[in-house]
Design a protein around this nucleic acid. Structure first.
Length: 293
DNA sequence: GACGCGTGGAG
DNA sequence: TCTCCAAGCGT
Protein backbone atom coordinates (compact mmCIF):
# COMPACT_ATOMS: atom_id res chain seq x y z
CA UNK A 1 0.00 0.00 0.00
CA UNK A 2 2.58 2.59 1.12
CA UNK A 3 5.05 1.42 -1.52
CA UNK A 4 2.58 1.68 -4.39
CA UNK A 5 1.30 5.09 -3.38
CA UNK A 6 4.83 6.44 -3.06
CA UNK A 7 5.78 4.99 -6.46
CA UNK A 8 2.72 6.62 -7.99
CA UNK A 9 3.65 9.91 -6.34
CA UNK A 10 7.17 9.86 -7.78
CA UNK A 11 5.73 10.13 -11.27
CA UNK A 12 2.51 12.06 -10.61
CA UNK A 13 3.43 14.73 -8.10
CA UNK A 14 2.45 18.25 -9.05
CA UNK A 15 5.25 20.73 -9.52
CA UNK A 16 4.34 23.15 -6.76
CA UNK A 17 6.63 26.02 -5.74
CA UNK A 18 6.63 25.09 -2.06
CA UNK A 19 7.99 21.70 -3.09
CA UNK A 20 10.92 23.17 -5.04
CA UNK A 21 14.43 22.19 -4.01
CA UNK A 22 15.19 25.74 -2.87
CA UNK A 23 12.14 26.02 -0.63
CA UNK A 24 12.62 27.23 2.92
CA UNK A 25 10.90 25.94 6.07
CA UNK A 26 9.20 29.32 6.26
CA UNK A 27 7.91 28.93 2.72
CA UNK A 28 6.50 25.54 3.61
CA UNK A 29 4.83 26.93 6.71
CA UNK A 30 3.29 29.80 4.74
CA UNK A 31 1.96 27.38 2.13
CA UNK A 32 0.41 25.14 4.76
CA UNK A 33 -1.42 28.01 6.42
CA UNK A 34 -2.66 29.32 3.07
CA UNK A 35 -3.83 25.84 2.11
CA UNK A 36 -6.00 25.50 5.20
CA UNK A 37 -9.38 25.28 3.46
CA UNK A 38 -8.22 27.05 0.30
CA UNK A 39 -7.55 25.25 -3.02
CA UNK A 40 -4.04 24.97 -4.49
CA UNK A 41 -4.90 26.90 -7.65
CA UNK A 42 -5.79 29.99 -5.66
CA UNK A 43 -2.91 29.67 -3.22
CA UNK A 44 -0.11 29.39 -5.77
CA UNK A 45 0.00 32.98 -7.09
CA UNK A 46 -0.64 34.42 -3.64
CA UNK A 47 2.19 32.33 -2.20
CA UNK A 48 4.65 33.55 -4.84
CA UNK A 49 3.81 37.20 -4.23
CA UNK A 50 3.86 36.69 -0.47
CA UNK A 51 7.29 35.02 -0.43
CA UNK A 52 8.70 37.73 -2.71
CA UNK A 53 7.47 40.41 -0.30
CA UNK A 54 8.33 38.66 2.97
CA UNK A 55 10.90 35.91 2.39
CA UNK A 56 11.60 35.39 6.10
CA UNK A 57 9.60 35.42 9.33
CA UNK A 58 11.40 38.62 10.33
CA UNK A 59 10.17 40.31 7.15
CA UNK A 60 6.56 39.42 7.83
CA UNK A 61 6.91 40.30 11.50
CA UNK A 62 7.93 43.83 10.54
CA UNK A 63 5.23 44.34 7.89
CA UNK A 64 2.17 46.53 8.16
CA UNK A 65 -0.90 44.42 8.92
CA UNK A 66 -2.83 46.32 6.27
CA UNK A 67 -0.28 45.21 3.67
CA UNK A 68 -0.50 41.66 4.97
CA UNK A 69 -4.29 41.62 4.67
CA UNK A 70 -4.12 43.06 1.17
CA UNK A 71 -1.58 40.43 0.12
CA UNK A 72 -3.87 37.79 1.56
CA UNK A 73 -6.33 39.12 -0.98
CA UNK A 74 -9.28 36.78 -1.44
CA UNK A 75 -7.84 33.59 -0.02
CA UNK A 76 -10.64 33.63 2.52
CA UNK A 77 -10.68 33.41 6.31
CA UNK A 78 -8.51 36.51 6.75
CA UNK A 79 -7.99 35.73 10.41
CA UNK A 80 -5.47 33.21 9.10
CA UNK A 81 -3.40 36.09 7.72
CA UNK A 82 -3.45 37.76 11.11
CA UNK A 83 -2.35 34.56 12.81
CA UNK A 84 0.36 34.02 10.24
CA UNK A 85 1.83 37.40 11.07
CA UNK A 86 1.52 36.62 14.80
CA UNK A 87 3.22 33.33 14.03
CA UNK A 88 6.10 35.14 12.33
CA UNK A 89 6.46 37.43 15.32
CA UNK A 90 6.48 34.47 17.69
CA UNK A 91 9.12 32.73 15.57
CA UNK A 92 11.28 35.85 15.81
CA UNK A 93 10.66 36.28 19.53
CA UNK A 94 10.97 32.67 20.63
CA UNK A 95 13.15 30.98 18.02
CA UNK A 96 15.54 33.62 16.72
CA UNK A 97 13.65 33.94 13.45
CA UNK A 98 14.02 30.28 12.47
CA UNK A 99 11.04 27.97 12.07
CA UNK A 100 11.28 25.39 14.87
CA UNK A 101 11.32 21.72 13.94
CA UNK A 102 9.91 20.12 17.04
CA UNK A 103 6.25 19.32 17.40
CA UNK A 104 5.68 21.07 20.69
CA UNK A 105 7.19 24.37 19.59
CA UNK A 106 5.29 24.30 16.31
CA UNK A 107 1.97 23.57 18.02
CA UNK A 108 2.50 26.51 20.33
CA UNK A 109 2.61 28.93 17.39
CA UNK A 110 -0.51 30.92 16.43
CA UNK A 111 -2.51 29.32 13.63
CA UNK A 112 -0.59 26.06 13.80
CA UNK A 113 -2.65 23.04 14.80
CA UNK A 114 -2.08 19.30 14.73
CA UNK A 115 -2.18 18.99 10.97
CA UNK A 116 0.02 21.96 10.14
CA UNK A 117 2.62 21.11 12.77
CA UNK A 118 2.91 17.59 11.39
CA UNK A 119 3.02 18.85 7.80
CA UNK A 120 5.77 21.37 8.51
CA UNK A 121 7.86 18.73 10.25
CA UNK A 122 7.48 16.37 7.32
CA UNK A 123 7.71 18.75 4.36
CA UNK A 124 10.08 21.39 5.68
CA UNK A 125 12.38 19.20 7.75
CA UNK A 126 11.91 15.70 6.38
CA UNK A 127 10.99 14.38 9.80
CA UNK A 128 8.68 11.50 10.61
CA UNK A 129 5.22 12.65 11.64
CA UNK A 130 1.62 11.57 11.33
CA UNK A 131 0.18 13.88 8.70
CA UNK A 132 -3.57 13.43 8.77
CA UNK A 133 -5.52 15.90 6.71
CA UNK A 134 -8.84 15.58 4.93
CA UNK A 135 -7.16 13.90 1.93
CA UNK A 136 -5.40 11.25 3.97
CA UNK A 137 -8.49 10.67 6.06
CA UNK A 138 -10.53 10.03 2.92
CA UNK A 139 -7.92 7.69 1.43
CA UNK A 140 -7.74 5.65 4.62
CA UNK A 141 -11.51 5.64 5.06
CA UNK A 142 -11.85 4.07 1.64
CA UNK A 143 -8.85 1.79 1.32
CA UNK A 144 -8.73 0.56 4.92
CA UNK A 145 -12.22 1.03 6.36
CA UNK A 146 -14.23 0.53 3.18
CA UNK A 147 -16.28 3.68 3.76
CA UNK A 148 -17.12 6.38 1.22
CA UNK A 149 -16.02 9.18 3.50
CA UNK A 150 -14.41 9.57 6.91
CA UNK A 151 -16.46 10.46 9.99
CA UNK A 152 -17.42 14.13 10.34
CA UNK A 153 -14.77 14.64 12.99
CA UNK A 154 -11.42 12.98 13.53
CA UNK A 155 -11.58 9.85 15.69
CA UNK A 156 -8.92 8.26 17.87
CA UNK A 157 -9.17 5.14 15.74
CA UNK A 158 -8.25 7.06 12.62
CA UNK A 159 -5.20 8.54 14.29
CA UNK A 160 -4.15 5.08 15.44
CA UNK A 161 -4.62 3.56 11.96
CA UNK A 162 -2.79 6.42 10.31
CA UNK A 163 0.12 6.25 12.76
CA UNK A 164 0.47 2.51 12.18
CA UNK A 165 0.94 3.07 8.46
CA UNK A 166 3.68 5.68 8.73
CA UNK A 167 7.09 4.20 7.89
CA UNK A 168 9.64 4.23 10.70
CA UNK A 169 12.28 6.02 8.68
CA UNK A 170 12.20 9.84 8.50
CA UNK A 171 12.63 10.16 4.75
CA UNK A 172 10.17 7.39 3.94
CA UNK A 173 7.63 8.81 6.37
CA UNK A 174 7.85 12.27 4.82
CA UNK A 175 7.43 10.78 1.34
CA UNK A 176 4.39 8.81 2.46
CA UNK A 177 2.84 11.95 3.94
CA UNK A 178 3.20 13.84 0.66
CA UNK A 179 2.16 10.87 -1.45
CA UNK A 180 -0.97 9.99 0.51
CA UNK A 181 -2.14 13.60 0.49
CA UNK A 182 -1.51 13.86 -3.23
CA UNK A 183 -3.44 10.67 -3.91
CA UNK A 184 -6.42 12.10 -2.05
CA UNK A 185 -6.13 15.40 -3.89
CA UNK A 186 -5.75 14.03 -7.42
CA UNK A 187 -7.25 10.51 -7.52
CA UNK A 188 -9.17 9.57 -4.39
CA UNK A 189 -11.21 12.76 -4.54
CA UNK A 190 -14.37 13.51 -2.61
CA UNK A 191 -16.66 14.08 -5.58
CA UNK A 192 -15.76 11.69 -8.39
CA UNK A 193 -12.86 9.44 -7.47
CA UNK A 194 -10.76 8.16 -10.36
CA UNK A 195 -10.48 4.57 -9.24
CA UNK A 196 -9.45 3.52 -12.79
CA UNK A 197 -6.05 5.12 -12.31
CA UNK A 198 -5.63 4.47 -8.60
CA UNK A 199 -2.42 2.62 -7.68
CA UNK A 200 -4.13 0.84 -4.77
CA UNK A 201 -7.47 0.06 -6.38
CA UNK A 202 -6.77 -3.67 -6.12
CA UNK A 203 -6.55 -3.44 -2.34
CA UNK A 204 -9.25 -0.85 -1.70
CA UNK A 205 -11.98 -2.08 0.64
CA UNK A 206 -14.44 0.56 -0.54
CA UNK A 207 -13.98 -0.32 -4.22
CA UNK A 208 -14.27 -4.03 -3.39
CA UNK A 209 -17.63 -3.35 -1.80
CA UNK A 210 -18.85 -1.63 -4.93
CA UNK A 211 -18.31 1.91 -3.72
CA UNK A 212 -21.27 2.13 -1.34
CA UNK A 213 -22.65 5.58 -0.52
CA UNK A 214 -21.69 7.48 2.59
CA UNK A 215 -23.55 6.11 5.59
CA UNK A 216 -22.79 8.80 8.12
CA UNK A 217 -26.16 10.02 9.39
CA UNK A 218 -26.71 13.73 9.77
CA UNK A 219 -23.53 14.82 8.09
CA UNK A 220 -23.14 18.47 8.87
CA UNK A 221 -24.89 20.34 6.13
CA UNK A 222 -23.10 23.39 4.96
CA UNK A 223 -24.34 26.58 6.45
CA UNK A 224 -26.50 28.58 4.08
CA UNK A 225 -24.40 31.35 2.67
CA UNK A 226 -26.77 34.11 1.65
CA UNK A 227 -27.35 36.54 4.47
CA UNK A 228 -24.78 35.13 6.86
CA UNK A 229 -22.39 37.18 8.92
CA UNK A 230 -19.61 35.59 6.92
CA UNK A 231 -20.94 37.13 3.76
CA UNK A 232 -21.30 40.53 5.37
CA UNK A 233 -17.85 40.38 6.93
CA UNK A 234 -16.44 39.38 3.56
CA UNK A 235 -18.03 42.39 1.90
CA UNK A 236 -16.71 44.77 4.51
CA UNK A 237 -13.21 43.32 4.24
CA UNK A 238 -13.30 43.56 0.45
CA UNK A 239 -14.35 47.20 0.70
CA UNK A 240 -11.50 48.05 3.07
CA UNK A 241 -8.91 46.02 1.13
CA UNK A 242 -9.68 47.94 -2.02
CA UNK A 243 -9.91 51.35 -0.38
CA UNK A 244 -7.00 53.76 -0.73
CA UNK A 245 -8.21 55.89 2.15
CA UNK A 246 -10.15 55.38 5.40
CA UNK A 247 -13.76 54.47 4.62
CA UNK A 248 -16.52 56.56 6.21
CA UNK A 249 -19.33 54.75 8.00
CA UNK A 250 -21.93 55.66 5.39
CA UNK A 251 -19.84 53.87 2.77
CA UNK A 252 -19.71 50.76 4.94
CA UNK A 253 -23.46 51.03 5.36
CA UNK A 254 -23.81 50.71 1.60
CA UNK A 255 -22.48 47.14 1.50
CA UNK A 256 -25.41 45.61 3.41
CA UNK A 257 -28.99 46.72 4.06
CA UNK A 258 -29.56 45.25 7.52
CA UNK A 259 -28.19 47.82 9.97
CA UNK A 260 -28.14 45.54 13.01
CA UNK A 261 -26.23 42.85 11.18
CA UNK A 262 -23.85 45.37 9.69
CA UNK A 263 -23.05 46.76 13.11
CA UNK A 264 -22.57 43.32 14.58
CA UNK A 265 -20.17 42.35 11.80
CA UNK A 266 -18.21 45.56 11.96
CA UNK A 267 -17.79 45.10 15.70
CA UNK A 268 -16.76 41.47 15.36
CA UNK A 269 -14.19 42.44 12.73
CA UNK A 270 -12.82 45.06 15.10
CA UNK A 271 -12.72 42.52 17.91
CA UNK A 272 -10.84 40.13 15.64
CA UNK A 273 -8.27 42.79 14.86
CA UNK A 274 -9.17 42.83 11.18
CA UNK A 275 -10.61 46.35 11.17
CA UNK A 276 -9.63 49.57 12.91
CA UNK A 277 -12.19 52.23 13.79
CA UNK A 278 -10.95 55.79 13.61
CA UNK A 279 -13.07 58.03 15.86
CA UNK A 280 -14.54 61.16 14.28
CA UNK A 281 -12.60 64.39 14.62
CA UNK A 282 -15.67 66.28 15.78
CA UNK A 283 -18.92 65.20 17.34
CA UNK A 284 -20.78 65.98 14.13
CA UNK A 285 -18.61 63.72 12.02
CA UNK A 286 -18.87 60.00 11.42
CA UNK A 287 -16.15 57.46 12.23
CA UNK A 288 -14.02 55.95 9.49
CA UNK A 289 -12.67 52.44 9.09
CA UNK A 290 -9.39 51.03 7.82
CA UNK A 291 -7.35 47.88 7.84
CA UNK A 292 -5.06 47.80 10.91
CA UNK A 293 -1.75 49.64 10.48
C1' DG B 1 -17.77 18.35 20.24
C1' DA B 2 -20.03 21.71 17.71
C1' DC B 3 -19.61 26.15 15.65
C1' DG B 4 -17.96 30.13 13.27
C1' DC B 5 -14.98 31.63 10.01
C1' DG B 6 -14.32 33.49 3.15
C1' DT B 7 -14.08 32.58 -1.40
C1' DG B 8 -14.78 30.89 -5.93
C1' DG B 9 -14.88 26.87 -9.08
C1' DA B 10 -16.95 22.50 -10.49
C1' DG B 11 -20.68 19.30 -11.20
C1' DT C 1 -29.19 27.66 -10.11
C1' DC C 2 -27.62 25.52 -6.13
C1' DT C 3 -24.91 22.45 -3.51
C1' DC C 4 -20.63 20.86 -2.28
C1' DC C 5 -16.09 21.36 -1.34
C1' DA C 6 -10.79 22.93 -0.80
C1' DA C 7 -3.57 20.68 2.78
C1' DG C 8 -8.04 23.50 9.61
C1' DC C 9 -7.86 26.34 13.63
C1' DG C 10 -9.56 28.43 17.84
C1' DT C 11 -13.04 28.76 21.13
Amino acid sequence: MVERVVAWFEESARDLPWRAADRSPWGVLVSEVMLQQTPVVRVEPAWRAWMAAWPTPADLAAASTADVLRAWDRLGYPRRALRLQECARAIVARHGGRVPDDEEALLALPGIGAYTAAAVRAFAFGRRSVVLDTNVRRVLARVVAGAALPAPSLTAGEVRDAAALVPADDVAAARWAAASMELGALVCTARSPRCEVCPVASSCAWLARGRPADDHPGRRRTQAWAGTDRQVRGRIMALLRDALHPVPLHAVDAVWPDAAQRTRCLESLEADGLVTRVPPASIDDEPTFTLPA
